[in-house]
Write a protein that binds this DNA or RNA. Structure first.
Length: 585
RNA sequence: CGGGUAGUAGCGCAGGGGCUAGCGCACUUGGUUCGGGACCAAGGGGUCGGAGGUUCAAAUCCUCUCUACCCGACCA
């Protein structure tokens, strides 16, 4: 590609709003352009880089036996009504009617579409297992897209779907994905970890998320440096201390103005762990069949030294979504905010208590009366509720596996794998006949990777003050060729010869100063830069510089193609030697 | 959806009732320069986000609205 003819150009200054380095450079170098909130175009450089990532994904998917298909972006609403997700997913999924007034949706994922396909293909156990994948555009109307390509509304995703006869088969294909994903990310030179995750709206049981750890991430990952335990904070567990002791008499005490745990502890001279705090949320519950929505107050009781993890609470309450309750909603149930507890609350609410409270005794809790708390409240004796782990794991809490202190870090989710089980096959009637003649629902899994997000993370991981430093496996071109000599013929000749040798070259043939060409080369960040200049050309040589390491050498023009091929091979080998082969334990 | 900020040339920004709307970069032409974002000269480019209003006069004041960004809610 000649830069004189390239569609995009580089920007000297970062467009306002580009707050991370990776995003700024992708914009400035001309990989992407924004159209609207969370909507981007890929320019030639971005398109080529994305294509490289996609081909790595394709190779690894084919390697585990997946067959590529392509399903429609526009789905008929019927299949989404069958699984109920037409109703349970809110505005994140965009809907419209076709000219005949039929309900349609823009598919944000393809469990419904693929199950619809599969039920037409699968009738016998002899057809199983099956595995398909696609690389396709998804539209999710996220309420607040942000951070460049990290959180967008339209994006390209690789999604694969597995169909198995039994759990054993699902385990096998799940493990295959677990491993393949590590290979994919490491072939893109992106460091990633797998963490236990919340399956959320996918409705499955077992799931893992792949995380690129970075401060730009929006997820919080809990890890144990000692034993390797990792989990998204949404599901992370930890060892809790319980304070079981002999139950004492319930006693009401005046605690004027003590509306927070902090005030209360100061007033009564106690520790937060000796209190039970009440957290009020409103859960939305949607009937999968009718689509009817109901709201219900959820009262969560947790010990004062911990915080509620909302996704755990939502799961425990079996709610579709939860939000903080308004004061009126709390008062309506006989509860006094600031002095609230389940003691004296009415029955028309969902009661969840963290096991930290259930297993500790004599906690101070609200008396549901302004200015009063109870001493010595005890779960079971004074009130009842469903016991669940709803506590949020934090830095320095104790690892659930080994008990050592946990770490917390930020991460970007770049992939996930789910064991769906029979959630979709049952609701969509995707059954097979087994060897013994019985009819059984197909067991499914789904597995996703965000392609654009992957590029954004790579850009974030590989850059410096001057620009991007792309790994050879995903760089849009392997070589950035700069000619600084007046006689264009030399540059043309070298460009031709490199291309003939099968090398991917971006040739800066523009009439620009040396400084501009160097700056643009640094910004675009191709792994190998070749400079044709009078300095070394006198000796028949050109300079070759590695962007990543700054390592500079010079080669005779006559040897250039071979030398560059060797350099490419060397850079590629460095990546190949570090492919992560990790099995799910 | 709540809170905040901002929309003026391709990009980054200034101007904040007054007559011709600027600056830097980018762009065009000519010349000089030629290994780390060159220089000189001459140019081109704007419905000041949109609609309505106030006024002799609006980019500027008022009302409404749209859009983007940041924080939060939200999010496989």
């Amino acid at each position: 590609m000649r830069m004189s003819n390239m569609f995009s150009r580089t920007l000297r200054e970062a467009p306002s709003g580009a707050d991370s380095k990776g995003y700024e450079y992708l914009l400035r170098a001309g990989f992407i352009r924004q159209m609207g909130a969370g909507i981007f175009s890929l320019l030639p450089l971005g398109f080529r880089a994305t294509a490289k990532i996609e081909s790595i994904i394709r190779e690894e998917m084919e390697r585990i036996g997946a067959q590529e298909i392509l399903m429609p972006v526009v789905n008929t609403a019927d299949i989404w009504k069958e699984t109920g997700r037409y109703y349970s997913i809110d505005k994140e999924m965009s809907r419209f009617e076709d000219r005949a007034g039929r309900d349609m949706v823009l598919a944000m994922t393809h469990e419904e579409a693929v199950t619809d396909l599969a039920r037409g293909e699968i009738d016998s156990y002899r057809r199983l297992p099956l595995l398909v994948y696609q690389i396709q555009t998804k539209w999710r109307d996220d309420p607040r897209p942000r951070a460049g390509l990290i959180r967008v509304r339209e994006f390209t995703m690789k999604d694969s779907y597995s169909f198995d006869r039994d759990q054993e088969g699902l385990d096998k294909v799940y493990r295959a994905h677990y491993k393949a994903y590590f290979r994919i990310f490491s072939r893109c030179a992106l460091p990633a970890i797998a963490v236990g995750a919340d399956s959320g709206m996918m409705g499955g049981k077992v799931s893992h998320e792949y995380m690129y750890l970075s401060p730009i991430g929006e997820d919080t990952i809990i890890t144990c440096p000692s034993c390797g335990y990792t989990a998204n904070r949404q599901v992370a567990t930890f060892q809790k201390d319980y304070y079981g002791e002999e139950m004492k008499m319930l006693e009401k005490v005046a605690t004027p103005d003590a509306k927070t745990i902090e005030d209360l502890c100061a007033y009564l001279h106690i520790e937060p762990r000796q209190t039970a705090k009440a957290v009020f949320m409103v859960g939305t519950f949607i009937d999968d069949h009718t689509g009817d929505e109901t709201e219900k107050l959820i009262v969560a009781i947790i010990r004062g030294d911990m915080d509620v993890e909302e996704s755990k609470l939502s799961n425990a309450a079996k709610a579709n979504s939860i939000r903080p309750a308004h004061e009126e909603e709390i008062v309506a149930h006989g509860i006094v905010p600031g002095f609230g507890s389940l003691i004296g609350a009415d029955d028309d609410l969902i009661r969840i208590v963290d096991d930290s409270v259930a297993k500790s005794n004599n906690l101070v809790a609200g008396a549901n009366e302004v200015g009063y708390h109870y001493l010595n409240t005890n779960f079971g004796r004074d009130y009842d509720a469903t016991v669940a782990d709803i506590a949020s794991a934090r830095q320095d809490y104790r690892c659930p596996v080994c008990g050592k202190p946990l770490d917390a870090s930020k991460g970007v989710e770049i992939g996930n794998i789910f064991q769906l089980g029979t959630r979709y096959s049952e609701s969509m009637n995707c059954y097979y006949q087994d060897e013994d003649g019985t009819r059984k629902p197909v067991i499914m899994g789904s597995y996703g990777i965000g392609v654009g997000r992957l590029l954004a993370c790579i850009a974030e991981e590989y850059n410096d003050e001057a620009g991007l430093k792309l790994p050879i496996s995903v760089a849009p071109y392997q070589v950035h060729l700069i000619s600084l000599v007046k006689d264009n013929a030399v540059g043309e000749e070298i460009y031709e010869s490199l291309q003939k040798a099968g090398i991917e070259v971006l040739y800066d043939d523009r009439k620009e100063s040396a400084g501009v060409k160097f700056a643009d080369a640094d910004l675009i960040g191709l792994p190998i830069r070749i400079t044709i200049g009078n300095r070394s050309l006198k000796e028949g040589k050109v300079e070759v510089k590695i962007r990543e390491t700054d390592e500079t050498t010079s080669f005779l023009v006559s040897d250039l193609a071979d030398e560059v091929k060797a350099t490419i091979a060397r850079l590629q080998k460095e990546i190949d030697e570090n492919i992560v082969e990790k099995e799910l334990d």
